[in-house]
């Protein structure tokens, strides 16, 4: 089945099996491997991307469902040679990543969180990241980074 979507500003056309998950499409067909797969039950959030501006788990969307959508993955969050997105910067400044595997999904979820709630409390950040699992950081520095990004000069983007 033919699909056509915009990924990180670039239009992509392909012919896919209907059962192709969006995450597999992004990784295997488009070749953007920053988006990871960490589970098979929609729990871990490693595959989180933005679909039409909102965080979704790309393991639980069929590529055919994303036909016509605008997708942003970790690779498209900042311009390739430009400065990092404030959320990426905040993650680095606060050592909010270790092995890096949950990181792309965590960053995308955090970006979406601040879009919906630009000045969250610590508890709201923790609840807002309920769908993203990390085994390395104990979440302490991730929560710190999201709060830092929210209060960064210019506010969250």
């Amino acid at each position: 089945m033919k699909v056509s979507m915009t990924i990180n500003g670039r239009s992509v056309d392909a012919d896919v099996e209907p059962r192709t998950l969006l995450v597999h499409f992004i990784r295997n067909d488009v070749g953007l491997t920053g988006t990871n797969v960490g589970c098979d039950t929609t729990n871990c959030g490693a595959c989180t991307i933005l679909m039409d501006g909102e965080s979704v788990k790309s393991c639980t969307v069929l590529a055919v469902q994303a036909d016509g959508a605008s997708i942003t993955t970790i690779e498209g969050l900042a311009e390739p040679d430009g400065p990092m997105h404030p959320m990426q910067e905040a993650f680095r400044e606060n050592h909010a990543l270790q092995c890096g595997y949950c990181t792309p999904g965590m960053v995308m979820a955090a970006v979406s969180l601040l879009q919906e709630n630009p000045s969250p409390t610590e508890a709201e950040v923790r609840e807002g990241l309920e769908g993203n699992l990390c085994r390395c950081t104990g979440y302490h520095n991730i929560v710190k980074a999201v709060l830092a990004a929210a209060s960064a000069p210019g506010g969250p983007k």
């Binding site: 990784r27 491997t33 920053g34 690779e75 969050l77 990092m84 990543l97 990181t103």
Partner: peptide
């Protein structure tokens, strides 16, 4: 000292075994 490793993980993601062509 901030990690040298991080920019890659944060902008294009790591290179894990299943990512390799």
């Amino acid at each position: 000292v901030l990690r040298k490793e991080d920019p890659k993980f944060l902008t294009v993601g790591g290179s894990y075994v299943d990512d390799l062509p």
